[in-house]
Amino acid sequence: MSILKINNLSVSYGNKQVIKDLSMNIARNKITAIIGPSGCGKSTLLTSLNLMIEENGGSISGEILFKDKASISYEKADIRRMIGMVFQTPTPFPFSIYKNLTYAPKYYGIKDKKELNRIVEDTLKEVGLYDEIDDLNMLATKLSGGQQQRLCIGRALTVEPEILLLDEPCSALDIRNTENIEKLLLDLSDEYTIVIVTHNLSQAKRISDYTAFILDGELIEYDTTDKVFTNPKDNRTREYIEGIYG
C-alpha cells in the first residue's frame, strides 16, 4: 500500500527545472532508495516531499498525496512533523543530548518531566545509543560523527513521524558507522516508511526494498531493488549500475 503518491511532480529553482514531471508511489513500511548521479535532483525530490524545498527557494508544481490527501492541503508544520528528515552531515543542536531529544516534544506541548524522560530513554534505545552514552547532559556535538547522526535520526523520531527521509545520511561516516546506521534503518522500517537518497549503490542494494533511478530530473526506472539491480529494463539504468556514469 502506498503512503505517498507523487503525480507529475515538477520542481524548479527560478528558471531552472530540476525535477521533470515525475510520478512514483512510496510503499508503506518499506525502504525506498533513490539513486542517481550527482546533481540529478535526488535531494531536491526528497526535500519536496516534506516541503522543505520552500525554505531553499524552490517551487513545486504537480501533486504529492500523503495518505491520499494533497500534501499542500495539510499545514506545512504538520507535514514536516509526519514526514521527518535527516540531513547529509549530522546536525546536532549545540546543546546537551537530553535537550536535543526534548526540543521538539516540548514544542508539541509535552511538559511532564517523566514523559520527557521516557521519550529520551525510548529514543536512545531505538537508535542504539542507550548503552553508548553515560551522561545525558553531555554536549551532543562531542559525540562521534556516527553517534551524532544516530542522535539526529532519534531526534526526528521524537515527534513520531510516519515517514523518515534521509539525504545521504552516511556520506560523512566511516564503514563501521555506516553499518550501524544501515542496521538501524532496517530495524526502523518495521515501524516507519523510509526514503533514502544515496550515491552508494551497494548501500541501496543492501537495505532497500525498492529503488528509483533518477537521471537529469527524470525518473528512469522504479522497481523492486532486486529487479533494478539484476535485470534493469532501461539501458541507462544498466549503464549507471555498471558504473558508466560518475
Binding site: 516534506n50 522543505m52 525554505e55 506545512k76 508544520a77 504538520d78 507535514i79 514536516r80 512533523r81 509526519m82 521527518g84 528528515m85 540531513f87 552531515t89 546536525t91 543542536f93 549545540p94 546543546f95 526540543y103 521538539a104 516540548k106 514544542y107 539526529c152 531526534r155 526526528a156 515527534v159
Partner: peptide
C-alpha cells in the same frame, strides 16, 4: 542546516528563534 533541521521537525520560526538560535 541546524536551523533547517528544526524547521524539518515541523517547528515554527518563532520557537526555533527563541529556543535554538538565540541560545546558540
Amino acid at each position: 542546516s541546524i536551523i533547517n533541521s528544526s524547521y524539518a521537525l515541523g517547528i515554527s520560526r518563532t520557537y526555533t528563534l527563541f529556543k535554538l538560535i538565540l541560545p546558540i
